[in-house]
C-alpha cells in the first residue's frame, strides 16, 4: 500500500513494542500467583498459609475455662482488660498439655514496663519511681497482679 511505503522501519519498531508487551504479559502470567486478587489486593492463598501456621497464643477465654478463680478476681480489678498472655506470654503449649508449666513472669521487670513513671504516660495512669516506691522489693510482695489495688482488697 502506498500509504505505508517506506514506513517499514516503523512497523519493525512497533513489532519490538508488541514483543516487549507480550513478553511482559507472559512473565506477568507466570510470576503473579494464581490466587492474587481473590479477596483483595494480595495473594489469597496467603490466608490459608497463615491459618496453617502453629498457634502460640491461646486467648484469655481459654485460660478462663480452667482458672475461674483468677478470672473472677481479675474481672473485679484494674487489670480486668489486660489479657492473660500480655503478662504470661504465649500459653498455647500449656493449653495443649497442662503439665507444661509456663512459669511465673518476673514482676521486677514486667510491672515497670507499664508503671515506671514517664512524662509520656497519661497523668491518671498509676506510675511510680520503682526505686523510691519499693526499694527493690518485688511488686508482688504487696500487690496481687490480678487485682493490684491494695485498698480494693487486692493485697496479698
Amino acid at each position: 500500500m502506498s500509504v505505508f511505503r517506506n514506513a517499514g522501519h516503523l512497523f519493525r519498531l512497533a513489532a519490538v513494542f508488541v514483543v516487549g508487551t507480550v513478553a511482559f504479559l507472559v512473565i506477568r502470567a507466570a510470576v503473579v500467583p494464581r490466587s492474587f486478587g481473590e479477596y483483595g489486593h494480595y495473594r489469597g492463598a496467603a490466608i490459608s498459609e497463615i491459618a496453617s501456621l502453629p498457634l502460640h497464643f491461646a486467648g484469655h477465654q481459654t485460660c478462663e475455662t480452667c482458672h475461674t478463680d483468677i478470672a473472677k478476681m481479675k474481672s473485679a480489678g484494674m487489670h480486668a482488660h489486660v489479657n492473660c498472655e500480655a503478662c504470661h506470654g504465649p500459653l498455647e503449649k500449656h493449653v495443649k498439655d497442662p503439665s507444661i508449666d509456663p512459669g511465673k513472669p518476673d514482676a521486677a521487670v514486667l510491672c515497670v514496663r507499664c508503671h515506671a513513671a514517664s512524662a509520656a504516660r497519661p497523668k491518671w495512669f498509676p506510675q511510680v519511681d520503682p526505686a523510691q516506691h519499693s526499694g527493690g522489693i518485688a511488686c508482688t510482695t504487696c500487690h496481687n497482679p490480678h487485682n493490684p489495688v491494695i485498698a480494693a482488697g487486692g493485697s496479698k
Binding site: R5, N6, A7, G8, H9, R12, L13, V16
Partner: peptide, 12 residues
C-alpha cells in the same frame, strides 16, 4: 539499532 531496516530514503 537499525532493527534491520536501512531505508533512509527521502520519504522514509
Amino acid at each position: 539499532l537499525t532493527l534491520g531496516s536501512t531505508d533512509v530514503s527521502e520519504r522514509a
